[in-house]
Design a protein around this nucleic acid. Sequence first.
DNA 1: GTGGTCTAGACCACC
DNA 2: GTGGTCTAGACCACA
Lengths: 133, 133, 133, 133
Amino acid sequence: MIKIDPTSFIPLYEQVKSGLRREIALGALKPGAPLPSIRDLAARLLINPNTVARAYADLERERLITTRKGKGCFVSEESGRLPGRDILKRLDGLFEAAIQDARRMGAADAEIRRIFEDRLGASSEERGKWRSS
Amino acid sequence: MIKIDPTSFIPLYEQVKSGLRREIALGALKPGAPLPSIRDLAARLLINPNTVARAYADLERERLITTRKGKGCFVSEESGRLPGRDILKRLDGLFEAAIQDARRMGAADAEIRRIFEDRLGASSEERGKWRSS
Amino acid sequence: MIKIDPTSFIPLYEQVKSGLRREIALGALKPGAPLPSIRDLAARLLINPNTVARAYADLERERLITTRKGKGCFVSEESGRLPGRDILKRLDGLFEAAIQDARRMGAADAEIRRIFEDRLGASSEERGKWRSS
Amino acid sequence: MIKIDPTSFIPLYEQVKSGLRREIALGALKPGAPLPSIRDLAARLLINPNTVARAYADLERERLITTRKGKGCFVSEESGRLPGRDILKRLDGLFEAAIQDARRMGAADAEIRRIFEDRLGASSEERGKWRSS
DNA sequence: GTGGTCTAGACCACC
DNA sequence: GTGGTCTAGACCACA
């Protein structure tokens, strides 16, 4: 169950990648399981097949999925051993709560995202990435 | 104190807008206060003045700031009465906690953002905006 | 059929906006119809594509047109229901007559405009906008 | 009685010029009469004296006014013989009617101006000035 | 091919 | 000094 927001600033292919990564990390798609075909997923998401193809290509480069010619794409066997596999679930719960609260206060997605981004930027400690003042 | 991430998918001018909105909403910039000049802020953020100018123009259209030709830009007097003024403060605290926790678990900004976006999309109730499957 | 006067004080992008609004309001461009591509219109008007893009962005903010990424810009379906739709047609006729008369008396565009502006300012009832003496 | 719209696209100094030209053409300021001092007019219009000075300089170049050092500015004696003196009054009445009608229909100044400009451009016969399509 | 973002640097109106 | 407009040309996401 992947969701796409065509009005977001995040590129469609990144949203597709995020969605698939999520499905795999949370176990909805297990190692060895077949992914939907490019054309099929594109049709369901109402986007261009080229866009889905790019997402699949990126994920293959990450070794999260593998493509077997003529057979389609599959979740790679090593996907379970990739880093961040378990902490994802805990972080997921963390934000679920905050987002639910925000929604209860009547905030729309765009507003929630803006607040999140503001907070992330305002409190970031990473060096070299942010330019400030 | 505005922060910019030049590697983000979010456009620079949107990040500038977010940063200024935050400063105003949290009271660091009060109604009537002068904003940094376009050229000045651009120099400090290492971005092009046109990009800052676009952000200022957008905020003026939102009536959050006003510009006086030859004098500069100022926080509008009505900025305090605009919707979402105090709700933002509460939401801000909400996400501050989740982000601090995530950082403590060793997650980098990009990972945090991905989890947030995944959660937002996965639990969205908004109609018409999301395309799924 | 949009016309542009590069010597006017009115910004080019405002003239493009006016021209397109006119075409839509008068029915030359109907809801759903594709607008000329940004690059195309820019080439025909001998102005920079960025300038046309700015006009299109403004009109989209007015919900008079919509843009579909990679496909182009289109007259919005709701454009016909927006305020001032038919009033414009009547006002158009009003000024058409006055302008024709002025031309018949040998006045050039710049002179006509000056007289119009003088009259507008001299008889204005709007408060707060005009400074007088 | 000059009126200035600081939100107009037309430069302030052009609006001042228009206003003075109008006063002179309609006879409110007769040849030889003294003009308000630069500082005085600037103060009354709430604009910078430099701006008024530029308007006066332009009008002097047009020979509509003359400045006598240490005494101030005066309507020039030849102002009455300048072209367009009488047709202006007739054109003025022409547009007064159209503008009054437009106002009665609830149109604001900005809308009226836009319609006027659209009409002027759409029906112009001048060569070389307009770029079309 | 489409539109969107960003940069660099110009000129202008206004203070 | 300020902001506003315009140009030229680059790169990217999407169809």
